[in-house]
Design a protein around this nucleic acid. Structure first.
Lengths: 340, 340
DNA sequence: TTTATTTACGCAATCGTTCCCGAAGTTTTA
DNA sequence: TAAAACTTCGGGAACGATTGCGTAAATAAA
């Protein structure tokens, strides 16, 4: 089965013109007479001509498509980021190809190979929690592939970055817990090698130090797969609750970890916030319907997506080599509800 | 900035061969000697040759990409469907291009135009709630574009369809409510023109009739945008609750409508299930953490995605004209929790 | 009226691959 | 030993759109 599209050649033949004339007429070139232009345009519309993007790509040596790698599209934060990216990309005629790393370094690498072989013009990536070795990504960048980091960046690669104000978000959340009277605030952080984890941890530490509360290392735990695997949240929680003096509040470092904690508390019949308060980073819009309604730090995901797409397109469309890159830090929002 | 890739021509020149020989060697043609093959393959690996997919697409007249149109990727059901599609497509070397209609007929149409101009080899679509006019889609199908419907199908277009057993799902849910003693079961259906709405409504009616409960038309309401706009859920609920004899149970016809109902009940301080029971179609994995944990009908979304991708690839790769199409009906799962 | 300039179009190369032919050189068959 | 059949490779034409260059005809300038 083949899907026969109408080409410039067909139009040329039917109108008794050359393909170059038709092409130029369609692109509104000045060297085509008004009459011919009208003739071609009307005929093209009549037969439903759509330029073959593949041929255009080959000729122009660009694909008009950008790749996006996120950990999981089912994650509200990332689906909102993608919506932001698409809103910009589509309006500039770019296709968005989405790939999911599922927090796996292997899958990230194969996505990377896949996208580059699809000759994407640029890449927006939020690196996976597992990834330790960035050499492939770095090589791509050095070979000239425009890259923009969103949410999770790599210090080593100099390019545009769009991130939330993780420090301040974590700081505000921790401060809120302190003000509510919680004394032993534990943190379930995402993989320690991620930039966001470090920033959030720093915010957490800063708030504690400001309140003269000592930072206890045994209240800091990590979920190396960002909560993608429930067992790691479960283990982290168990370790925390096994201690002599149990924590009275939990600060969760990602969407998945936040809901994972809640799930754990439900299963163990831990009352929230009576027994244990809970706050976390989350962009789910179901958090207020949960039991109890969750206090969360919300990131401007859609806007972050838009910003990263704009920056990427500016990289792609600029001819010269970029040397100055910006890091856009967008502010987070603290939503206080029943869980704290 | 350009990203210079190594081509077959480079290899040919460096090895003193012709491009045709190199091409054939890479494709393991029988008419190339083992020695030459080895030479070419080793050199290709050394210089990191990756065939240009765009050129291949142009030559082969296929893009090795498939389009997917769903209402919203943030919707758990669809993100799971997409994961299923990707798992099959990627393993067959196909790129998946995702577009969101947001339940809007206009956006669906522009997505359609966009995807076809990207010369996709096939399309998997779950039509938007708003769409009434399928002529464009039908024309594409008649012109030979392989199409598979997932979840929401159109009777008018004869092709493969992968749907959940909506009738049985709705029947089981309604029967469950009846067994629990609910008498006045209202339904908040998705747009009435959708196939799934009709099927679910039929299941609802069948269960009531079986229990000899009269079907009251004033207990049947519609959310034309599938709950995408909260106001329509709100209105529907208000209308239902304004009646002399209020309903004692709600059956919600989609993910968004289900959570929309819960949100409404929360806002109005309606206790669930004491004042009003709630059950609905949903694939969110947060439903058990909600307040109260929601009883839901869950669809095998991932498997539905896999099935539709397999069917689409078989359509794409078969040379001859297909005349026999199948409709795969996959069974749903009833998860009973506190809300009923 | 002759020359210069502009207008409006066609020819052909190009992007990177694939593949139909044709043509050597080698081996097998009659 | 001559003809037939392989084997192994190169030339070159596609795929569809774009674009530099060339060139008639039409117009403007001299």
């Amino acid at each position: 089965m083949k899907f026969e599209a109408v080409t410039i050649k067909h139009i040329a033949q039917e109108l008794g013109l050359s393909t170059s004339t038709v092409s130029r007429a369609l692109r509104d070139s000045h060297e085509i007479s008004a009459a011919t232009k009208k003739l071609v345009l009307e005929h093209a519309k009549k037969v439903g001509f759509k330029p073959n993007r593949i041929a255009q790509s080959l000729k122009e040596r660009k694909s008009l498509s950008i790749g996006v790698i996120v950990s999981e599209i089912a994650n509200s934060f990332f689906s909102q980021v993608i919506n932001g990216i698409e809103s910009i990309a589509y309006s500039h005629g770019y296709t968005v190809i989405i790939a999911q790393s599922m927090e796996s370094a292997d899958r990230e690498l194969s996505n990377l190979e896949y996208l580059t072989s699809s000759s994407i013009d640029g890449l927006i990536i939020s690196v996976s929690a597992e990834t330790k070795n960035y050499s492939y990504l770095k090589k791509l960048h050095e070979r000239g592939l425009p890259i923009v980091f969103v949410d999770r960046a790599i210090d080593d690669i100099e390019t545009h970055k769009v991130i939330a104000d993780n420090f301040k978000g974590a700081y505000k959340a921790t401060k809120h817990l302190i003000q509510k009277g919680y004394k032993r605030i534990a943190i379930l952080s995402n993989n320690s090698s991620l930039s966001i984890s470090q920033e959030r941890l720093d915010g957490y530490r800063a708030a504690l130090q400001e309140a003269k509360i000592p930072v206890k290392e045994n209240l800091i735990t990590y979920c190396d797969h960002g909560g993608m695997i429930y067992a790691e949240v479960e283990n982290a929680m168990k370790t925390l609750l096994k201690q002599r003096i149990k924590p009275d509040a939990i600060f969760a470092g990602s969407d998945k970890i936040t809901t994972g904690c809640l799930k754990f508390m439900k299963q163990k019949n831990i009352r929230t916030p009576a027994d244990l308060a809970l706050i976390g980073f989350s962009n789910t819009d179901l958090t207020e319907l949960l039991n109890p309604p969750l206090s969360v730090i919300r990131q401007p995901a859609f806007e972050m997506g838009q910003a990263s797409a704009s920056l990427l397109l500016s990289l792609i469309e600029s001819k010269k080599l970029h040397t100055k890159f910006e890091t856009r830090i967008q502010s987070t929002e603290l939503l206080i509800r029943k869980s704290t």
